[in-house]
Nucleic acid binder design. Structure first.
Lengths: 252, 252
DNA sequence: GACCTCGGTTGCGTATGTTGCAACGGCTGT
DNA sequence: ACAGCCGTTGCAACATACGCAACCGAGGTC
């Protein structure tokens, strides 16, 4: 809609991947370097970008600042923090908090596990709905019509042999998740990792976010994973309570 | 330099402070609301903002994502982490890591102290050079010419009775800091807090960042603060070693 | 239930801001 | 000393983003 802004934001994404030189950037987004220069200067004034030496551009401090302000403004994140941190400390597994945004899952918090099996996730990163436990929990919580709509509108890229690949399979899975109150990702996203997730609810019983635990398969088999569910649910219940939820369905 | 981009970035700052409505934003930056709408739409496409209901705009997940990528790309942050986390755990005081950017100090990491005296700081936030211990350390590490230049170019807002207010006083203080190898902020920034800071060095002995401890005066008097210096310096030395620094001045 | 207000949305013509070009200049390495 | 690489600047042409004003749609009020 706004060309220059659009280009500038694309620039930020390029710079984020790695510090870039001006010509690289110009070629990458297909505009003249003088144009890129002017955009970068504006970004620089606002501290969205900073220069390293003369040639390299890196992301600037405004990014951190705004991001931290934004994170602080996500209430669930704060209210769920004690419960999730405790869960992480107790089990040693990686804990994620995620919410739904525009057809995808967005991680809004992460507590690193003790086993340094590096996972390809990060706060702010997005992931698909069809192959993540958190995605299933979030979509399962929506009204049936919206569930259908989403199930039919998203893509089903095959990421592992276990990935769900059709809307009908996905809808069946969602039904199961809604019934059980938790979701499993049985190595449907990454080959060597499986997860369980459960919802965090707010004052009106609405699902604010989903929390998950991710465990390498070498560490725990499927049975072992399922054995974590009560622990997870205890944590999400505690997080829900801190978010205003009450047992009988209506808060305050 | 680029008007629309400039406006868009200003918008982001407004939104960061608090979720805003379109008209608010339009009035705040003094442009027509249709213009704001178009900018917001572009920002939304890139996930820099998201909408809450129809009326409210909030920062979006792209901010977190880029910010985390940016933080990861700051090498000192990672290499200093163990030493600073340990320092924080050992002393219970708030620990900051900061670097110089464009005439100011930028906090690039923060370890919250155990006493919940809330401090007005945040990762990504900027602070003045003249009244912070980290600022003094960073500027003191620069070559004399640059030090002079900076000392004469910055403002000296009076924030407390102890704030340094003249370039010559500041330069004298910097000389002292350079000589001692650490800096003090004797309640020059915030009335009830004093700090000590020391440099973190890289492979060539250059100062990569400054680490500080901040303590409420009610908790520790000036003597007590100075008594923390050896502990702080042990931590910054460890952080420096992890950053490639070696005792004899030349790394690798 | 009709009115009103408030906020978001759209189409359009204009002028403004942005773009690409080409030439310049500083730096690095040969 | 030269060549190549990048960043930087001035300018003229054009596309773009702008403001305007009218249109919706929802919520609240009488």
């Amino acid at each position: 809609m706004s060309q220059s802004l659009d280009r500038a934001l694309t620039l930020l994404n390029s710079i984020a991947k790695d510090a870039r030189t001006l010509d690289d950037l110009a070629e990458e987004i297909g505009v003249h370097k003088s144009t890129v220069l002017r955009l970068l200067r504006t970004l620089e004034q606002h501290h969205f970008v900073r220069r390293e030496g003369t040639r390299y551009y890196r992301l600037g401090s405004a990014m951190f600042d705004l991001a931290n302000q934004a994170l602080d403004s996500i209430d669930v994140r704060r209210s769920a923090q004690p419960a999730l941190a405790a869960l992480n400390a107790r089990t040693g597994h990686t804990v994620h908090l995620a919410s739904y945004d525009d057809g995808e899952v967005v991680y809004i918090d992460k507590y690193e596990g003790r086993h340094s099996v590096r996972m390809y996730s990060r706060v702010g990163k997005r992931a698909p709905l069809h192959c993540t436990a958190v995605g299933k929990v979030l979509v399962a919580a929506m009204p049936p019509a919206r569930r259908e709509e989403i199930a039919h509108s998203i893509e089903y890229p095959v990421l592992t042999p276990n990935t769900i690949t059709t809307p009908s399979d996905y809808l069946a899975e969602l039904e199961r998740v809604g019934r059980l109150g938790y979701a499993v990702d049985n190595a449907e996203h990454e080959d060597f990792i499986h997860c369980v997730a459960a919802p965090v609810r707010g004052a009106d019983g609405e699902v604010l976010a989903a929390a998950s635990m991710s465990v390498p398969k070498v560490l725990l088999d499927y049975e072992g994973l399922l054995a974590l569910v009560p622990d997870l649910r205890a944590a999400t219940t505690e997080a829900s309570v801190h978010s205003g939820w009450t047992e009988n369905g209506k808060g305050h």
